[in-house]
């Protein structure tokens, strides 16, 4: 056809508005050390780290079908690598965080070749077992405190910045940077040619394989990238905590159960879902945490209600009613204006 009256667009009005708003919000957040209190910054820093963890878990589970309940393996591994690289390697903490990411990705390679032999529920259990193996192994390392853990030496903490407020600003910015990086990586990956493959795998593996998509390789790349970035996040998390122990580092509750809650509530298989889920999770936590056990019961009830009433999560619920998306991933075929009959 020579005069094709159709054109393809990948953006939308909502996406352009969202991009402007997103940029504004990021600018305001970057300036937080000048307008927010110490406690608020700490809370926001934690929120950003959870947002990053959730975005990466969503990339694996929501798109590649890799339902891992063992990502705490990489959070803990990254945390321990931060301690090892700074204490024994003498690296500056910022370089140690990058190093933890690289090492996390490297160790994810043999782990992937092992657990990719398992399918479905067996895969999920396999990832958990791997995480337990990591936890037990690090508990054996007496140089890093064994089962009781160790603290980051004061000298290393000071090397970040001399003043306490300087350190807090820096670790806040690194958390914000981590969240922006994680979402950007997920976004760019999904918008690329590989993203089409991943979305196809999400919807139908049989058809995806029959259309030339190397499912194993696609999942492998996702697993290694997500795990490497998760290890970096782990390093960041324990740079803020300043203390590490096997139980805290490899906690399935803290680093996987809450993350799954966030993604499922927000909307699995969408970029926007984890963002909304993180906001809901922190809103619940900050208002209900004083109630102790009741807080966990409320989380459970919210999870059950969302799964029954809106199985695609809050964002899925919105998208079903209003055809919008904030991050432009879709292709839209439009009839060209001048060619309209």
């Amino acid at each position: 056809m020579s005069d094709q009256p159709h054109e393809i667009s990948r953006s939308s009005q909502a996406a352009r508005v969202a991009a402007v708003l997103g940029a504004l919000i990021i600018i305001i957040l970057v300036a937080a050390p000048w307008w927010a209190g110490r406690a608020d910054m700490r809370l926001m820093g934690e929120l950003f780290l959870y947002l990053a963890l959730a975005s990466l878990w969503n990339l694996m589970a929501g798109y590649a079908g890799l339902v891992s309940v063992g990502q705490q393996a990489y959070v803990g591994f990254g945390g321990y690598m931060l301690f090892a690289l700074t204490i024994f390697g003498g690296l500056h903490p910022v370089f140690a965080i990058a190093g933890a990411g690289v090492l996390g990705a490297l160790i994810a390679i043999p782990v992937a070749t092992l657990i990719f032999r398992l399918r479905g529920a067996y895969f999920a259990i396999g990832t958990w077992v791997i995480a337990e193996v990591f936890r037990l192994s690090f508990a054996q390392l007496s140089a890093l405190g064994g089962g009781s853990g160790s603290s980051l030496p004061v000298g290393i903490v000071r090397s970040l910045a001399s003043s306490r407020s300087g350190r807090e600003s820096l670790s806040y910015w690194m958390a914000l940077g981590a969240a922006v990086t994680a979402i950007t990586v997920v976004y760019l990956m999904l918008r690329s040619r590989r993203g089409l493959a991943l979305t196809a795998i999400r919807d139908n593996e049989l058809a995806a394989g029959s259309l030339g998509i190397d499912i194993w390789r696609t999942k492998f790349v996702v697993y290694v990238v997500a795990s490497g970035l998760t290890a970096m996040l782990g390093a960041l998390i324990f740079l803020q905590k300043l203390r590490i122990s096997p139980d805290a580092a490899f906690s399935v509750n803290d680093w996987t159960a809450f993350v799954i809650f966030i993604v499922v509530i927000g909307g699995i298989g969408t970029i926007e879902g984890p963002i909304i889920g993180t906001l809901i999770f922190f809103a619940l936590r900050e208002t209900l945490a004083d109630l102790g056990t009741t807080y966990l019961i409320v989380l459970g009830v919210v999870a059950i209600v969302v799964m029954l009433k809106a199985p695609k999560g809050v964002w899925g619920f919105i998208v079903e009613r209003y055809d919008i998306q904030l991050l432009p991933l879709r292709y839209r075929v439009n009839v060209k204006e001048h060619a309209k009959r």
Binding site: A200, D203, N204, A207, R330, R332
Partner: peptide, 11 residues
């Protein structure tokens, strides 16, 4: 038929 249900026809 094995469509990619969450993607548009064009996708």
């Amino acid at each position: 038929p094995q469509p990619f249900s969450g993607m548009s026809v064009f996708e």
